[in-house]
């Protein structure tokens, strides 16, 4: 598991509203129970952690970010671009 994946998993895990906080990269964000505000906070936490700006608009989010992997990929791409 890359550093980015581990960090993104840890950030998302904190937002899971259920008692069972088990998470895998293939999980759907919706099924994890993330609501719109959790999602916003997750994006903010990830951006702060990696010092990047994700091209995320809540109006199109459902198509752009469906799974944990989608978030990891977006961050990885931005981190690579920075590096």
């Amino acid at each position: 598991m890359t550093d980015v994946t581990a960090d993104v998993l840890a950030i998302i895990q904190k937002k899971i509203p259920k008692e069972d906080k088990s998470i895998a990269v293939g999980d759907s964000l919706e099924e994890l129970g993330l609501e719109s505000v959790d999602f916003l906070e997750m994006v903010f936490d990830v951006e702060e952690k990696f010092d990047v700006q994700i091209d995320y608009n809540a109006n199109t989010a459902a198509e752009d970010f469906k799974t944990v992997q989608d978030v990891v990929n977006a961050i990885q791409e931005l981190v690579d671009k920075k590096g």
Partner: peptide, 20 residues
Amino acid sequence: EAMRVMANDTCRPFSKGRRG
């Protein structure tokens, strides 16, 4: 801006392709 609901083109209520 932090709410991620702002349009960067214009306001298109009820329309396909709206950005917020």
